[in-house]
Design a protein around this nucleic acid. Structure first.
Lengths: 218, 218
DNA sequence: GATAAAACAGGCATTGGTGCCGGTTTTTCA
DNA sequence: TGAAAAACCGGCACCAATGCCTGTTTTATC
């Protein structure tokens, strides 16, 4: 059967220097994306090696070749998920801010932040976070990686919104409040039947962040 | 070996009408408390029948007698955890409000709310909530039970703080915001190294709730 | 074109969780 | 007092997940 990925082409391609490495990287990414899907669909409990290799359509041997143990897979998955999360958020964030009236910038940015918590990456990340509470080894990997992610996050947001310059305390506070409130709202969602109640919470947050911004300028 | 719980005493106790029922209820509670501990210490993944019966020091047969299947145990555990959560919160809430200057009532109430999220009951509840996301059968039990819990919660808080009377929308919003923000803060805790940052978030919430309260009166 | 190494294929033993069963002790009630 | 029922005991069979292992194919290197 023909591989759907890079074809060998031994006679036509003059200089594909490292074909094995590219193939291996592709398989690796395939497995990690499949693992992310497993996390989203079945939670950390159903993140099993068998389930992942079924989802990725690879053999047991391929799995074992790239990730010797389950812990190995999870370790790589942490960085994979955080990388995708940062990449997608910054992309959405910057493109949303690009063509937006500065007067509505805060409302738009807050909404993008909320939307970013409904992505597969974040769902997978949250599963890892919850599992890490009772798994010291996972925690030892996840906590430093996430802190590094947060630092990059903050510095990128600072670059994106120069208006906050000189008031990084206020901006950090606004970020922390938004992150906590959105996360809690996401989890409590099934228990708040009325959508108006959820919107009221988000509106309150926008007003609060606007207030913090005004304080930082006055 | 002597039972550490209710002793038979066939000749001395004139009227213990249903001794079996009391014994059964005690064993049941013992198992459910042990299950709560398992959730706290090992998360939903390690909530296994074997682990629970070890923790409770009961036999396999006793376990099977009271809870035929694991699903049976989880179903009872939901109500057990919600009951304990409501009981403890109301107790702490009312006793804290009793001897408090009304001017600081909101700050105190908010703090009690935050403290209530660090209890074993809430930790266990959160594990159930996260597991329910990818477990439809668990979700079908947990969601209605939690909504009922929320209704009781709200009505009890309304009774406890008559000042909000006539502004139940504002009170509900304040409650929703506090619940979401505290929950998110609890989960994000390991990633916020500086305690001052966490306190700043909580101070912001207190100021916000005070503001909502002022709005409801002006 | 021969050799080494990377990438992959598939199976097997162990472990741990679940469900269920036949037997035993204790309590209740006629 | 004696029989029925409730409460409890401990083990076994099944299944799913993990880790490891021995082959096989494909690519790189000399």
């Amino acid at each position: 059967m023909a591989s759907s990925l890079p074809a060998p082409l031994p006679h036509d391609d003059p200089a594909p220097p490292r074909w094995q490495q590219r193939k291996a990287a592709a398989t690796r990414k395939l497995i990690l994306d499949a693992a992310t899907d497993c996390l989203v669909e079945g939670g950390y409990a159903r993140l099993t090696t068998v389930e992942v290799l079924k989802q990725a359509n690879v053999s047991r041997g391929a799995m074992h070749h790239h990730f010797t143990s389950r812990a190995d897979l999870v370790s790589a998955l942490i960085h994979h998920v955080l990388h995708k999360r940062l990449e997608r958020f910054l992309s959405d964030y910057l493109s949303a801010l690009k063509d937006t009236d500065p007067a509505h910038a805060i409302a738009v940015a807050t909404d993008v932040h909320w939307q970013s918590m409904k992505t597969p990456e974040f769902t997978a990340f949250l599963e890892l976070v919850m599992a890490a509470r009772t798994d010291p080894e996972l925690s030892a990997l996840l906590v430093p990686a996430t802190r590094e992610f947060e630092r990059t996050w903050i510095s990128e947001v600072e670059r994106a919104i120069p208006h906050w310059s000189g008031a990084s305390d206020q901006m950090l506070l606004a970020n922390d409040v938004a992150a906590a409130l959105h996360l809690g709202l996401l989890i409590n969602r099934p228990f708040i039947e009325d959508p108006a109640r959820r919107e009221a919470v988000r509106d309150t947050l926008v007003a609060l962040v606007k207030d913090l911004f005004a304080q930082s300028k006055g």
